[in-house]
């Protein structure tokens, strides 16, 4: 009897580890996608002064991870990618960091900034309570989803943080 319970326990433990490892692997994949700029940012409308309302399209085999990664992608996009203008009165937005080499020059800072649970979270909030519109959940291939999440990025605060770190220059720098 005791042996049977031990066997079942072992099997359950292995299953749990398996799920955990699978989740870790997907998280790593999502992070790799962010680093490779495998996401799309588009302007969603005019936000309050000092912030940008954007829709981030992230890719993942599991929609849950795409939603989780959207906030990181949004901040990454504002810092390194920018976006083109479009509808809703949006104008184009150039990335905060214009120097292409900055990401490698300040690799240590960005590594910690964009780590899971890193500082990037201070500068982004979910709009629409994090709900995904039905049209923003697209299955792009047999095994992959493209998920659009609307978030609000506090660009002014983010810019000031990067200025204080010496990664970008303030407008009044040198005067």
């Amino acid at each position: 009897m005791n042996k049977q319970i031990a066997k079942i326990g072992l099997v359950l433990l292995l299953i749990t580890f398996g799920f955990n490892a699978q989740a870790q692997r997907k998280k790593k994949l999502a992070n790799r996608d962010t680093k490779a700029w495998r996401y799309d940012v588009e302007c969603e409308g005019i936000a309050k002064q000092g912030s940008k309302l954007v829709k981030v399209w992230s890719y993942s085999k599991n929609p849950k991870f795409a939603i989780g990664q959207a906030m990181k992608n949004a901040v990454h996009g504002i810092v390194f990618k920018g976006y083109a203008g479009g509808g809703n009165g949006c104008t184009s937005f150039k990335p905060l960091v214009r120097n292409a080499a900055a990401e490698t020059e300040h690799a240590a800072f960005f590594e910690s900034f964009f780590s899971d649970g890193g500082e990037f979270r201070k500068y982004v909030t979910a709009a629409a309570d994090g709900n995904i519109a039905p049209g923003d959940r697209l299955k792009v291939s047999k095994r992959e989803y493209k998920i659009g999440v609307v978030v609000n990025v506090a660009t002014d605060q983010l810019r000031k943080r990067l200025e204080s770190e010496g990664i970008i220059k303030a407008l009044s720098a040198g005067f």
Binding site: I46, K48, G89, T91, K94, K169, L171, G174
Partner: peptide
């Protein structure tokens, strides 16, 4: 809304000038 949406581009080009 117009001011909010355009000022970043303006300061961006001013930064390039500086």
């Amino acid at each position: 809304e117009a001011v909010l949406s355009h000022m970043d581009n303006f300061t961006g080009s001013l930064q390039t000038h500086f």
